[in-house]
């Protein structure tokens, strides 16, 4: 019961701040709302007994990605961009598409057999970092290496694109 109350608090805050992200005019306010949203998601990961993912979420998203966003906003001139209207005209097609998406999602979640699961049947995972580390370095070693290579490529790409042209 307590868990359900906490789920409601976190879910309501997450949805509210997500709506704030897409509806606020000032990008700085959007970043702060996104930070609130990500922190609520980290709390939900703790409710799902995955503390490692929760910590990674806080470190990588709140600590790195959002600070990067703030840094870029600081370098740009946001005054012009923040004067934009939320829904410019002629977007009826987009809204229709969103309605179709909503109906589809509701149908999928309500008709799915898996959605009826309420408690984990067996609990052989203890959610420790040790399990994830062992799996990452034995069974999933190839994806792990590929991801590290992708990070290296992203680092080089960001440096090359951020540099001034040398003529």
């Amino acid at each position: 019961m307590t868990e359900q109350i906490f789920f409601f608090i976190f879910a309501a805050l997450a949805v509210g701040s997500a709506i704030a992200v897409v509806s606020l005019r000032n990008p700085v306010h959007s970043v702060i709302s996104l930070m609130v949203c990500f922190l609520q998601m980290a709390a939900l990961f703790v409710l799902l007994r995955s503390p490692f993912i929760a910590v990674v979420q806080v470190f990588v998203y709140v600590g790195a990605v959002l600070v990067l966003f703030l840094f870029v906003i600081m370098m740009l001139d946001i005054h012009k961009a923040s004067m934009e209207r939320f829904v410019s005209g002629g977007q009826l097609g987009v809204i229709g598409l969103l309605v179709v998406l909503v109906i589809e999602m509701v149908l999928i979640v309500s008709k799915s057999k898996l959605a009826g699961i309420s408690v984990a049947s067996v609990t052989h995972l203890d959610g420790s970092v040790r399990e994830i580390g062992e799996a990452l370095f034995t069974k999933y070693i190839l994806p792990f290496e590929v991801v590290s290579f992708i990070l290296l490529v992203a680092l080089l790409g960001a440096i090359v694109m951020g540099r001034k042209e040398v003529k």
Binding site: S50, I53, Y61, S121, L125, L136, A154, G157
Partner: peptide, 28 residues
């Protein structure tokens, strides 16, 4: 968590990593 299968968590670690790389490139 509900199926007690570690693969979901492993996948979400990869998703977080790729999202971080994507944001770095996009902001560049």
């Amino acid at each position: 968590y509900f199926l007690q299968d570690l693969r979901g968590q492993i996948f979400s670690v990869f998703v977080i990593t790729i999202a971080a790389a994507e944001v770095a490139i996009a902001l560049g």
